[in-house]
Simulated assay, not measured.
Amino acid sequence: MGQPLRVGVVGVGAISGQYLSTFARLEAVRLVAVADLDEARAAAVAAEQGVRALTVDELTTDPEVDLVLNLTIPAAHAEIALQAIAAGKAVYGEKPLAATLEDARTVLEAGRAAGVRVGCAPDTVLGTGVQTARKAIDDGAIGEPVAATATMMYPGPERWHPNPDFYYQPGGGPLLDMGPYYVTTLVTLLGPVVSVLGAASHTRSTRTIGSGPRQGTVIPVDADTHVTGVLRHESGVLSTLVMSFDSVATRASEIEVHGLTGSLVVPDPNRFDGDVQLHELGGAWRTLPPSAGYRDAARGYGVADLATTPPGVPARANGDIAYHVLDIMTALLASADSGTLVTVESTCDRPAPVPLSDAPVRPGRGSA
């Protein structure tokens, strides 16, 4: 205890910049090394950050690294995580926990056997947006919750992403790509899910890249691109989920939660902040001031939260939640394929709420 958690990053693509910018202002973590299959890119980022550039094998076994931050593509999540765990490192990965439920289970079991922590994005649920909504629900502002909706509809990432291929391969699609933000938020607000009923469509067999050096390149689509379904929470609440890469836009609220005496609009779950709006029975819409969550949070706060969580206490962005969310999403796809109700085999505890506070800055080695 008393020292920052030393972090090595594997995968320094586009998303890594957000983590590195956050780490620069967090006292609980310290970047010590980076690695990437593109060694030149790793060297450039290392020089910019003033840290070492290593190979992946070197980083996952380096004695100066306490936690491996895994920012690789989903297909590589399990491989890198298992390599780090085998070396006695804690791991924190981008979502999803792994490309398949079997691989995700292997990661969690390896982490438990090695006695190291496994964390996973999204950590957006730790910000003031979702946490303020959670506090309102827990405080009874909408009465007994009965239903929720979660909607994400847009044309797809190929219009702006220079290499969108993985979005349309197995393990991709709107549900596994963006669903973790929405499903993790629903679990944070309303608790675990026990069963799902889904439907999905695959409207086009190819997509055309719209920007970057590969503009005009046609890529195959091997994932469902519109997924919808109903999630039954353990509490009895029914959540309706719509995730689509086949639409232009929507005016629907990202997430709404409805209770017997009120309704709540939850801000974009891909953000850490945003306005929470409450409409009480007989009243009118009003915006709630932030009342919970980390202020000014950004990607990487989940790592800092893990670093400052005492041993034996679950970190808030933990692997069990990420596994349950992946279980929900794969069950939804299985239901869409079979046309039947599917039971979600796993469960998880709701993470501890985040009191209204600034960054988790207590130096520590909570990951060990």
Rank of each mutant, 00 (worst) to 15 (best):
L186K: 05
D38V: 02
E158W: 13
A334K: 13
A40N: 06
N163Q: 08
S195W: 02
S211A: 13
G210F: 12
A81H: 04
K95R: 11
D224P: 03
T185N: 02
A28R: 02
A297L: 07
D66S: 07
V118P: 11
T60Y: 05
L278F: 03
P74N: 08
A121P: 01
A113V: 12
D305H: 09
G127W: 06
I15M: 04
L288F: 09
T55C: 04
V344Y: 06
T308F: 10
T208R: 15
R350V: 10
R271I: 01
P355E: 05
A98I: 08
P310W: 06
M1D: 15
G283W: 15
P162F: 06
G171D: 10
D222M: 09
R159F: 06
Y182P: 12
G171R: 07
R41G: 00
I255Y: 07
L189P: 04
G216E: 15
L37I: 03
T72S: 06
V276N: 00
S338W: 01
Q277G: 03
V68R: 03
T240H: 15
L189Q: 00
G172R: 11
L190Y: 00
A78P: 04
Y294Q: 07
S338Y: 02
D139H: 14
P122T: 10
A24Y: 08
A99M: 12
T61R: 11
E94C: 10
G173D: 04
